[in-house]
Computed example of a mutant assay.
Amino acid sequence: MAAPTTSTSNRVLRQEVLGSRRLSNYWWATVVSLGATGFLLAGISSYLKVNLLPFADPTKLLFIPQGIVMGLYGLAGLLVALYLWMMILLDVGGGYNEFNQETGYIRIFRWGFLGKNREIEVGCRIQDVQAIRVEIKEGLNPRRSIYLRVKGRRDIPLTRVGEPLPLSELENQGAQLARFLEVPIEGL
């Protein structure tokens, strides 16, 4: 997938953050939807004794227990698919990081789930930023993230969740941000 877009002027740096609208999420939502629909149609076919699938003949299955189990798997799969499509539709995790030297303010915005926390916004003053922290953890569950270290607060994550960024992109983004905010970079 393409790198997150960064727009900059002399005094404002804005980084777009990719949320749930990734190619891999579209792929898995489609695969789960198709598989779950097949299971559900197989369960219904075994009950009605009418073949609803063009590539198989589930009418020969006994409704109890195979047809019921396949129907339940299909329903469960469709619920998972609905969840995945809702995540994509709502673009959960998507948003932007805006560093504005004109106003002296940093705004980090992300989309969340429906409800009172649909819009998640964190802000702070640029003068409160102590450093940019880069975290690189390799292994079975790799993590490559950039954090904003702010006085009197926990570190604020700035990168997307899920797919780790390539090392070169992580280093470039961290260095660009540290130069723009005129703070040190930690962890490289």
Rank of each mutant, 00 (worst) to 15 (best):
144 R>M: 06
24 S>M: 06
19 G>L: 00
109 F>P: 00
128 D>Q: 13
178 A>T: 02
70 M>C: 00
127 Q>N: 11
121 E>V: 15
59 T>L: 03
94 G>F: 01
55 F>M: 06
55 F>G: 05
60 K>H: 09
172 N>S: 07
126 I>W: 03
28 W>L: 12
178 A>K: 04
14 R>K: 15
26 Y>A: 04
125 R>V: 02
142 P>L: 03
55 F>N: 11
50 V>G: 05
177 L>G: 07
184 P>K: 09
182 E>F: 01
18 L>I: 15
178 A>I: 05
132 I>Q: 08
111 W>E: 11
123 G>K: 10
39 F>V: 06
71 G>D: 08
97 N>I: 10
125 R>T: 10
115 G>F: 00
102 E>Y: 08
104 G>Y: 11
130 Q>I: 13
140 L>K: 15
19 G>M: 09
117 N>D: 12
74 G>A: 06
14 R>E: 14
173 Q>R: 14
53 L>C: 06
38 G>S: 12
66 Q>W: 11
139 G>D: 02
67 G>Q: 09
148 L>D: 09
48 L>H: 07
24 S>R: 10
114 L>M: 10
3 A>K: 09
98 E>G: 01
43 G>D: 07
13 L>E: 02
65 P>V: 07
10 N>D: 15
149 R>G: 00
15 Q>S: 04
40 L>R: 03
7 S>I: 14
186 E>N: 03
75 L>P: 03
27 W>P: 00
105 Y>M: 15
131 A>P: 04
97 N>S: 11
151 K>R: 15
123 G>I: 00
167 L>V: 08
82 L>T: 13
166 P>K: 10
60 K>N: 13
136 I>C: 03
87 M>N: 13
164 P>G: 07
181 L>K: 05
105 Y>P: 00
66 Q>A: 13
92 V>D: 01
9 S>A: 02
71 G>T: 07
